[in-house]
Design a binder for these strands. Structure first.
Lengths: 348, 348
DNA sequence: CATGCGACTACAAACGTTTGCAGCAGAACT
DNA sequence: AGTTCTGCTGCAAACGTTTGTAGTCGCATG
């Protein structure tokens, strides 16, 4: 029922191959002929069938985007940026959700493999070896984890964690808890490593609570553990957990930041909406989405090229972090005025 | 390079048609033969090429999902539910973002038309006639707007608006502002209609401010207009605008709910995170996503069947709504205890 | 005048499937 | 014994494109 290339050929009195070339190789066909063809195509409402094209060219002009949890506020900006960027280059995006499950993740890559030109694997829960294996089935770009031999885009979350710890120590905190993220997360390991090092360097104590699922509920659930740890500040794996923690502390009558300071990571839309507004490490998610698309489209063919893009993070100081018990000098209330998200908005 | 059906046929010593049937019509092939074929396929890591299959069957097993703004917290739960539901039925989901632009929307439907079995059009900004026209190109299911002659799933947002207004009037408010949503939104018209009617019935005044873009910024931007209107309560088009408004009011030293009550719509994840927690109308977004997929898969073929699924909404009373100036009786602070989101969590 | 070239177009094979049809063996009827 | 039926399998066409090759024409070149 829908118009095919053959209909257009008939209507414009040329061979199908000419019609094809009128679209995909304009310089090979007479300007006049081409005009006729395009007119006829327009008339018939012809749109090329991408499946047929894919069958012969081997390129589908589709990209798969696999995330751990669409509803996690970290991902929508990334998805949005990737989709828009991809569409600008005439690619469409499959989006799929693994529910934080490595098994589902693998199944999804395999299922998508034949109908995409590549897959963007965001915050994967699989092992490196699993990922490497899958990369033989379909070009992969990994986001939020470096995988040896594969193109990847990561955020310099270690630097973010370091800044956060230094910020807290600077405020007078000597005993800090790290509210850990999910097992198997590279980001989590990275944060832990950097935070531990930064704490030791600064002469502070760091107690790790976790691993935990990266959810708000999980943040709330660890409130008692945090209190028991007797710390005066907490660095959470992400904003979601930080928010959950603040909430639970609030319920227990513990004041943030007066009694405990809390710092998140990601600078999601949430962080400006909580009371107190969340001090957090801004990660450039939209830029990551675009970069991942670019990498995939670049070496779509020359597979197994190593390439690692590292995006910078920065500390956004708001209201959830305040002076600790060991403050040595400086004004009473806070070291720096709140930036009110300015930093995160100028960041692109 | 990747294994094709022919490789499997060769490896198992049968004809390709037998291999094909071993997968798609198991009852037509001998159990033993089938076992051989499946074993060979497994051995070779064979996965059928969906493009080739689509070419001949005419069904791609793909669905397009078009939303106005992925980053709007209303959509991720819907996307997530739709994706998971679709995948359970062996369908994959294209997700695309129109940036609230009707032109982009149309272009997207057209672009997707040939490579999907149908499109889920969420909160469209196009006109009904445009949508009807497009439905001749590809099966459509519309979400958040009824379109005559097309399957659609809507939320009974009118009822929600009514409940919200009655709630406010019950609290003693006699002058209420409606912070309107985007032009061209059916939901917006519906809310306006229902709110106006409910206000008149209850003997209260309703002043409409808008239309406005459905964003947080837009909510903030209208704070002065709200104050000028001299109302004691506001019903916002969605949570996002409500949150923006509360924020701006806070900046101006206006207390919510003491001086002005604010009610949102959607019960997004945000609403439990604001201080005060937002009183809002819960819309079943996940259920809507699933229902839309179901409708599309049901009458994928017998097009142009009218069918309208209406999902119920409910009022979730939290802390952003309080007594108004004309309270007649009852305890001082509030009429009902906050539900703390229980209602919205039990709702599925 | 023959040759070669450039610009354009037609032909046909191929991509990896599905599916109507025909064939064939053996079983079950008459 | 002949016929019909049943269960299974092979054959080949088709889906809508792209693309290498070959052909045609007119024209400039030698």
């Amino acid at each position: 029922m829908p118009a095919t290339i053959r209909d257009v050929a008939r209507a414009s009195g040329v061979h199908v191959s000419t019609v094809s070339r009128a679209f995909s190789a304009p310089h090979l066909v007479n300007t006049e002929t081409r005009a006729h063809v395009l007119a006829a195509a327009e008339e018939l409402g012809y749109r090329p069938n991408r499946a047929a094209r894919a069958l012969i060219t081997g390129r589908t002009h589709n990209i798969g985007l696999i995330v751990a949890d669409i509803a996690n506020p970290f991902f929508p900006p990334l998805i949005k940026a990737a989709e828009s960027h991809a569409r600008g280059r005439d690619y469409h995006l499959f989006v799929a959700d693994t529910n934080e499950d490595a098994g589902v993740e693998e199944e999804l890559v395999l299922a998508l493999a034949k109908q995409v030109d590549g897959v963007l694997l965001c915050s994967p829960r699989m092992s490196n070896t699993q990922i490497e294996q899958l990369s033989r089935e379909v070009p992969l770009v990994v986001v939020n984890r470096p995988v040896p031999g594969l193109p990847a885009v990561v955020m310099d979350v270690a630097q973010g964690a370091r800044l956060a710890v230094e910020h807290l120590v600077g405020l007078g905190h000597r005993s800090i808890a790290l509210l850990g993220g999910p097992r198997g997360s590279w980001t989590n390991r990275e944060i832990r490593r950097a935070a531990t090092l930064a704490a030791r360097t600064a002469g502070a104590e760091l107690v790790v609570i976790g691993p935990n699922p990266p959810t708000e509920e999980s943040g709330s659930a660890q409130a008692d553990a945090v209190l028991r740890a007797g710390v005066s500040a907490v660095l959470a794996y992400n904003d979601l957990m930080a928010v959950g923690l603040i909430d639970a502390l609030d319920h227990r009558g513990v004041k943030v930041p007066d009694q405990i300071s809390v710092v998140g990571i990601d600078d999601t839309a949430l962080s400006r909406r909580t009371r107190p507004m969340l001090t957090t490490v801004a990660t450039p998610t939209a830029a990551a989405g675009r970069a991942a698309v670019d990498m995939l489209l670049q070496h779509g063919d020359d597979r197994r090229t190593t390439a690692l893009v590292t995006l910078q993070t920065e500390l956004v100081i708001r209201d959830s972090s305040g002076p600790g018990p060991h403050r040595t000098a400086g004004p009473g209330r806070r070291q720096q005025p709140p930036l009110d998200g300015v930093a995160s908005e100028s960041r692109e």
